[in-house]
């Protein structure tokens, strides 16, 4: 048993260091999250190895043999005090950086541009502000085949919004505040490379923010179970330089024009299983 415990401790470390399974290369500003994770790995890894090896030692050293008798020691206040203190210290060492980074996570920078992600079973749609730089009003009452996102047709700020029914594009290095809306059930927007994610709750608007720091095309997944085709609710986010982004932006349709093309709207509204890839 002792031998097995030593092997478990060392094997786990070896697995951690050598196995090919590790996080995807980061593509956002949340390197801090990765750092906190690494700190946590160090502290917990140390504690795990130390305790498992200590147990292994006890099993060898204090294994029953004829004539052996255990010590009688109900308590040891000093030792218990020390261990409690050290643990509290370890916990503080984890919590402090954790809360420090969380404080940044909850504070959206002033200059972040707003975009909207609208989830429905089982596909994604996106909305970018139009020339006025604002996202217009929306309400589930307005949803129809022609208006799958439920934008308010009376609101001028909404009429110039860009409605996107394909991959989402984002400019490199600019902070974005992502507003999240669902018309049916709870979903979650998750791009592993960005590290950040947030649930999408029907009846309310949730948000999170990040800054893309690497160009490329990334998978977006629904990360909250949302029905039979949850696993197939995928999207794609393209991060690109300023020039490429601007030319992509020019090709997008405004809500005012989109509303004319009802066929496209119907396709969005139809809740069919997305194409299998």
């Amino acid at each position: 048993m002792a031998l097995v415990l030593v092997l478990i401790a060392l094997g786990s470390i070896a697995f951690h260091l050598l196995s090919p399974w590790w996080w995807t290369p980061i593509a956002s500003n949340w390197g801090y999250i990765d750092s906190t994770l690494i700190i946590t790995f160090w502290i917990t890894g140390f504690v795990f190895t130390a305790i498992v090896l200590f147990v292994a030692y006890c099993l060898v050293r204090f294994r029953h043999a004829p004539g052996r008798r255990a010590a009688y020691e109900p308590e040891n206040r000093r030792l218990e005090g020390w261990l409690t203190g050290l643990t509290a210290l370890g916990v503080a060492a984890l919590l402090a950086p954790g809360l420090f980074v969380w404080n940044q996570f909850v504070r959206v920078p002033q200059n972040a541009s707003e975009i909207e992600i609208v989830a429905q079973q089982w596909r994604w749609a996106y909305r970018l502000p139009g020339a006025d730089g604002r996202l217009g009003a929306s309400d589930i009452r307005h949803v129809s085949d022609e208006n799958p996102l439920g934008l308010d047709p009376q609101d001028a700020a909404a009429r110039d919004d860009l409605v996107i029914d394909a991959d989402l594009h984002l400019p490199l290095g600019r902070p974005v505040k992502v507003l999240l809306r669902s018309t049916d059930v709870v979903h979650n927007f998750y791009v592993p490379e960005f590290r950040a994610k947030m649930d999408i709750i029907p009846g309310m608007v949730t948000y999170f923010w990040f800054t893309p720091t690497r160009t490329g095309t990334f998978d977006a997944l629904c990360n909250e179970v949302c029905g039979t085709n949850h696993y197939a609710m995928r999207g794609r986010v393209v991060v690109e330089g300023e020039a490429a982004y601007s030319s992509w932006l020019r090709e997008q349709t405004t809500f005012a024009n989109f509303a004319g093309g009802g066929e496209r709207g119907r396709r969005v509204a139809r809740r069919e299983a997305p194409p299998v890839r």
Partner: peptide
């Protein structure tokens, strides 16, 4: 218990939750 310290520490939970 130790991996619970990952998930309990709010910001570390963000990438890991529901994985």
């Amino acid at each position: 218990g130790l991996t619970g310290l990952f998930l309990g520490n709010v910001v570390v939970d963000v990438p890991l939750s529901d994985t």
